[in-house]
């Protein structure tokens, strides 16, 4: 399916620029051109389709759905699954949190959404498809959903309401089931498309620099680091590798678009996929800027519990990945 991109990269590097096949620089550049085109293409396709889904399921609809339906435990799954298709920028985490709580949605369910949403998003899925293929992407999405769900259920057992800041408790006391306030838009499909297209282009434009830099770093490492270089330090047999990679990654912050191309090279050089994914999830899913924002609605203790539970879940899914692959 992507042969034509490889042909283009070969043509550009070997014919046009005239670099010799097999030289390090040539191979690194070839890899860079091929990967950039393929990944940006896939990214756009995924972002565009997620845009269509999102146009029909905006966040208000998600909240109303979760608020109205008692689903006997299934609501954790639904919240987590909605987290995949609903994009949200970390600066929205507080309004989102309050909005959910105000709609009478339990804290655990709210957390399930808050955890999955940054972890598995359209950009991450697009990149994953381009870098690791369909099977790994499916497993990644599923494990992201399960992770959010599990963490949400565990968190709900802690009786976390105690640790909210006073004004959120007040909101909680006045919480009510959301009536059908949401006015459904009846814009026909073809009128939605231009808007969705523009949004997708805007998102892509925003992540392009990160992706290019990520792929460039990846390309350099690809060309210059010997095969199996990391295997010595981070093999599957080394049981400490997953927790170490995760804990190291928590204070780091980047978005999926910057980190994934680098992760792919790490994997191709011998780091087990599970370890690499645990690292990536911790970088993307947990961040200090987000913690600072959440301080407005949660006590430090709750933020600590939240980060602790998510870190544990990431470590577990890292081990699982290593078992599967």
């Amino acid at each position: 399916m992507f042969d034509w991109i490889q042909q283009f990269a070969d043509w550009l590097i070997y014919r046009q620029i005239g670099l010799e096949r097999g030289r390090r620089l040539a191979e690194a550049l070839n890899f860079f051109v091929y990967d950039s085109i393929k990944i940006l293409l896939l990214l756009f396709v995924v972002i565009f389709f997620m845009g269509i889904v999102n146009s029909y399921f905006p966040i208000e609809k998600v909240r109303n759905f979760l608020s109205r339906n008692k689903l006997y435990g299934l609501e954790y799954f639904m919240a987590s699954a909605f987290g995949v298709v609903t994009p949200f920028c970390s600066c929205s985490s507080v309004p989102l949190f309050i909005g959910f709580v105000r709609g009478g949605i339990p804290l655990g369910v709210t957390f399930a959404f808050l955890i999955t949403s940054p972890l598995v998003n359209e950009v991450a899925i697009g990149l994953f498809l381009g870098l690791f293929g369909l099977k790994a992407t499916a497993i990644y999405v599923i494990s992201g959903v399960v992770l959010g769900m599990t963490a949400g259920i565990i968190l709900s057992r802690f009786r976390l309401e105690r640790y909210l800041t006073p004004w959120v408790k007040e909101v909680l006391a006045n919480a009510q089931r959301e009536e059908e306030k949401f006015t459904a838009e009846n814009t026909p499909f073809f009128q939605r498309l231009p808007v969705i297209w523009r949004e997708a282009a805007k998102i892509l434009k925003g992540v392009v620099p990160y992706v290019i830099v990520g792929i460039a770093i990846g390309g350099l490492m690809h060309g210059y680091i010997p095969e199996g270089f990391f295997e010595k330090y981070m093999s599957k047999e080394n049981l400490l590798a997953v927790p170490m990679a995760t804990v190291l990654a928590v204070p780091m912050y980047s978005n999926a678009s910057g980190i994934l191309p680098v992760v792919q090279v790490l994997v191709s050089k011998g780091i087990p996929l599970g370890t690499a994914i645990a690292f990536m999830m911790a970088v993307v899913g947990l961040s200090f800027p987000e913690a600072m924002l959440l301080k407005k609605v949660m006590s430090l203790k709750l933020i600590g519990i939240f980060f602790g539970v998510v870190t544990l879940c990431i470590i577990v899914s890292g081990y699982l990945f290593n078992l599967i692959f």
């Binding site: 600066c91 929205s92 909005g99």
Partner: peptide
């Protein structure tokens, strides 16, 4: 101010 923002009942900024 997040509290003022929430008066408008929005969930994403």
């Amino acid at each position: 101010d997040i509290m003022k923002i929430m008066e408008y009942d929005i969930m994403s900024t």
